[in-house]
Design a protein around this nucleic acid. Structure first.
Length: 506
RNA sequence: CGGGGCGUAGCGCAGUCCGGUAGCGCACCUGGUUUGGGACCAGGGGGUCCCAGGUUCGAAUCCUGGUGCCCCGACCA
């Protein structure tokens, strides 16, 4: 049925806060969900988004958890400038080349009133910068240039710094959270005396990311190494965590880079070793961004809206009263206050939705759209029976329980939800790793089933590029736990000693 | 950067072909009835029709030139 997207759009938006079905148009489902759930919206600036309070509070939860993990592994936060002088930016050649095409550049520092157009401003041609400033697409340049001043001896090492910041990459095509021109992220930048220590740091932070993805986001990931062509510009080795979305497309959720001595050499960062020798410093960098929000949304949510893992939900429990009179509401509120207090005491965020402007059904739908893990409903019947209705967002199951059991039951329920959405995502992910032996199979799986395709590859960039060209699939990673196994490249037939994961990706 | 679409009330859109007082749904405000899965009735408020110029007695509508955003592709952590 050749309905245009415009037609589909008409159908649901006129109905209020409904979103299109995932299996009809996954991409439209995602876009509408982000907007309708109050996570983010497009701004006046092309490719840039406004993260709304509800969306931002999820991001803050992510930040808190990650920040703690960084601190627990010995890192400290710092802040470096938004602007990078062009001469610094170009110092590490590969890095500069890699990002050159998507840099925003500041060329002037002043506006003036436009004599030709009343009330308008124009760039003051007199105020041209002597040296242009690049708006950071990443901060290695400015940071390594700074580290040069901080490091003289092995005693100054290691430096274990992280910064929470915004960066700008002038993307041609953007999508809310998944790829925006400006995005928020954290970038860790560490400096070490030995290669071994730097590699250990790189892997350690990859483990931190994997741990965060799995135990907080409830999103299983595959740890792996990128191929040469997918490597971070300027890095020796790029490690990643790859996740699987519900539409069978892969998403890179975090990266950790072993920089070798590349940036040290480019910025002349040397240290005197214990033995009195002058050596180049070893480096790492690692980051995750607001893209994780996109991953979180696409990993769990359904046609009724967001499904949030309790560990990242801004509101754990919403309580909806069902009442006819003020009198009734008052009685219900007394009970609700007791429950709320008991839950808050245990550290949960509780929302009592006592608006008298909306009916319960409306509230149920709205909080489901926003992904609140647990909903309690209390009405006159419950007052009589000393009960409360408990509903879980992930499965939509409802049960009625005794009021005095609630404060003990809710924590168990939240734990169960956290586990069960992880298990569901894990099940989906595992079902979508398909081993293939031939190129025809690889293409067939990509087209008909999606997901990761595990196949032998001859290790050459030519084969990788050819497969990408023909199938739109890229090598997502060489899994860290890959086992050596003799085989033949699905494309070239040349010998291969391990399988890699192919997928179409975000 | 190529192809397409769209800029009209807070949101989603109709009206544009064929010029003549700017409309519909949702949302909003007031009053009432409702409230265990997206309430109903009555009344009401709100718009430089993206911008600039032109044609015309008269432009959301026709002409010219801008501009912004979205979608698809290419590119890309």
């Amino acid at each position: 049925m050749p309905f245009s997207k415009t037609v589909i759009r008409n159908n649901y938006t006129s109905m209020g806060k409904e979103i299109p079905a995932r299996n009809e148009d996954y991409s439209l489902w995602y876009n509408e969900l982000v907007k309708k759930a109050d996570l983010a919206e497009h701004s006046e600036v092309r490719g840039c988004m406004v993260i709304k309070p509800y969306g931002y509070s999820i991001w803050e939860k992510m930040q808190q958890a990650l920040d703690k993990m960084f601190k627990d592994t010995g890192h400290s936060n710092a802040y470096f400038p938004l602007f990078v002088p062009k001469s610094l930016f170009e110092a590490e050649e590969k890095n500069a080349e890699g990002f050159a095409k998507e840099c925003a550049i500041v060329t002037h520092y002043r506006l003036k009133t436009d004599p030709e157009h009343k009330g308008k401003l124009m760039v003051d041609p007199e105020a041209k910068l002597e040296e242009e400033l690049v708006v950071r697409p990443t901060s290695e340049a400015i940071i390594w240039n700074t580290y040069k001043k901080w490091i003289q001896s092995y005693r100054d090492l290691p430096i274990l710094v992280n910064q929470w910041a915004n960066v700008v990459r002038w993307e041609m095509r953007t999508r809310l959270f998944l790829r925006t021109a400006e995005f928020l992220w954290q970038e860790g930048h560490t400096a070490h005396a030995t290669a071994d220590e730097a590699v250990r740091e790189t892997v350690q932070m990859l483990d931190v990311y994997a741990e965060f993805a799995e135990s907080f986001m409830a999103m299983p990931v595959i740890k792996g190494r990128k191929t040469d062509s997918e490597r971070f510009p300027g890095a020796v080795d790029t490690y990643c965590i790859e996740a699987m979305m519900q539409d069978g497309k892969a998403l890179q959720a975090g990266t950790s880079h072993f920089l070798g001595q590349n940036f040290a050499k480019a910025f002349n960062v040397k240290f005197t070793s214990k033995e009195g020798k002058l050596e180049d410093v070893w480096g790492t960098s690692w980051g995750v961004s607001t893209r994780l929000m996109g991953a979180l949304i696409m990993a769990h949510s359904d046609d009724d809206g967001l499904v949030l893992p309790p560990k990242l939900a801004p509101i754990h429990v919403v309580i909806v009263p069902i009442f006819k009179s003020d009198e009734e509401l008052k009685k219900i509120t007394e009970k609700v206050d007791q429950i709320s207090a008991a839950l808050r005491k245990q550290g949960y965020a509780v929302k009592f939705d006592n608006r008298d402007t909306h009916k319960p059904g409306f509230k149920f739908a709205e909080w489901e759209l926003k992904g609140v893990p647990v909903r309690l409903a209390i009405g006159p019947r419950d007052l009589e029976n000393g009960t409360v209705e408990v509903a879980r967002r992930d499965t939509k199951e409802k049960q009625v329980m005794k009021l005095d059991e609630v404060s003990a039951a809710v924590p168990r329920l939240l734990d169960d939800i956290q586990q069960s959405i992880y298990q569901r995502a894990l099940g989906y992910r595992n079902e979508h790793i398909t081993k293939v032996e031939t190129y025809d199979e690889l293409k067939k799986v990509l087209d008909e089933k999606g997901g990761f395709v595990s196949a032998h590859w001859d290790g050459t960039p030519e084969t990788e590029a050819a497969i990408k060209e023909e199938t739109k699939a890229t090598i997502r990673c060489i899994p860290l736990d890959v086992k050596e196994e003799a085989g033949k490249c699905v494309y070239s037939g040349k010998p291969s000693n391990k399988r890699v994961l192919f997928a179409r990706a975000y």
